[in-house]
Amino acid sequence: MSSNKPDTEHGRKPVQAKNGAPIIEVRDLVTRYGETTVLDGISCAVRPGEIFVIIGGSGSGKTTLLKHMCGLLQPAAGEIVYRGQDITRMDEDELAQMQRSIGIAFQSSGLFNSMTVGDNVALPLREYGEVDNSLIPDVVRMKLSLVGLADAENKLPSELSGGMRKRAGLARAIALDPPLVYFDEPSAGIDPIMASGLDDLILDLNRLLGTTFVIVTHELDSIRKVAHRILMLDRGKVIFLGTMEEADHTDVERVRQFFERRPDEFIAHRNIA
């Protein structure tokens, strides 16, 4: 069995995001854990069809911001507007409805250990009833083949490697073709070949299905490959928001340090000592 050669070559360049109303907008977001302010007045807007990458050092509040954007955390102050509605003011049902329309791929995959990989991907399809029941096995197989896990359908998550679990988590996140997918650390803990393949998949889904991605990552290669725009957090504040080209020419010292992989002074001194 074989396919014919494609009629045209297709590259994997990021496409320009559509202009217009943001799909999700964060306004003056403040989050506190006890006395500690984790996010301090964060504002940003993600456009439809965009790959929006959130970067920053460890503990800068990236994952916290992502969880706010998914409606998993309630802020101390500020608004998060998804398609014109403030999710911080939504009741439980409205929030659940909003969460149905997004996909979330967690850093540690968030797969249910008691279910096979196939059942994990099928779960949103069965629960939300948006797909004909008889077609669900085909959709599951298609989603798994998209992430390169066609053979893992009957395996348990515990039988998969970290990278495979991450890809299975993404397959579940895109099961319902959501317009917006959040992806926490897609490249962390997986080999460069796999990470590059995952970046290609993100670009393909973005281009072919118009899926908007909000990605939290540290991986410089991935950022350069997929990002349309970058938001950099430092100590809970936005210190940069712009394209990769703008990031390469910025005067913000912390951003330059991040992309040039320069250690903090005290670490450099310790290394010299």
Partner: peptide, 18 residues
Amino acid sequence: DVVAFLDLVKPGLLTRPT
């Protein structure tokens, strides 16, 4: 884009379900 889509799903089209 149809080529790109077919390339993406080709592994699934060419392999038997496990």
